[in-house]
Amino acid sequence: MATNSLNRQQASGTPRIRWQAVAGQIWEVFWALATLFFVVFPIAWLIYTSFRSGLDVYSDRYFSQLTLENFQTIFFGEFSVVPEFFTSLFVSTATVLIGIPFAVMAAYVFSRFRFRGAQVLLVAVLTTQFIPALMIALPFYNLFRNTGIYDTPWALIIVYLSLALPYSIWMMRGFIDALPIEIEEAAVVDGCNEFQVLAYVTFPLVLPGIITTLVFSFIMCWNEFTYALLLAGQETVTLQIAMTRTIGIQGIAWELIAAIGMLVMIPMFIVSFSIRKYFVEGLTMGAVK
């Protein structure tokens, strides 16, 4: 009998330790779920609000009937943000389509060639990221007003390039650094010039990195608020600024902000989900992997 109970104890631990293990597990699951709640609740509440009527949003009720009327208003109604949606889409797309090829080429040079001043140039490029936005915005505001660029999408595209390019160059350099150089050297031996190496050898290999960089730059432009607020006139209101304009005589129309918010965030959820593996690398420009 004595050996029997000893065996059983070995199999499942002493009751005290087993209880502790269970309690520990519950404790861990509790904190994991608390984290999930903290992260998801504001998003979920915004989504829910976008499907509630304005009357319900302004009441102290938690539950209400769902309706599509807010989306009707922002797509077809008096507060239509369809033009703003396309402004955002055009500005962000144009910025990444112009910026990414340039960034890839520059990153390739920084990664693969050693030349005098390379280090200084690379740091200078990164430093431009830390200049306060207001310092950039004020002179550009005057310049754009004087040259007629003001209130065209190009005003925003020019400024967004100054945001997206330094970031993309650094990220792309990290991705190209990670590729073995031997394949490229073999291509050179076979008679490729630098442009051919980049186009036919490096480009296909680094494509996942390019897509990641592209998505990050796109999110950056899409979510940008400061320049959009300062440099956009009546014709170039982006979605971000459209939210600030739902404030009417009756105060803020929260249900409309929520509906526009869906338009703002859902596309970004989809694209960021597609590159989730590279998220941490992307955020720190490769400093943390």
């Binding site: 998003i43 971000q240 918010g261 703002v264 965030m265 960021s272 989900f273």
Partner: peptide, 10 residues
């Protein structure tokens, strides 16, 4: 990753 994709203004 989702909160990051929500714009600061929103």
């Amino acid at each position: 990753i989702f909160p990051f994709a929500v714009s600061p203004a929103l």
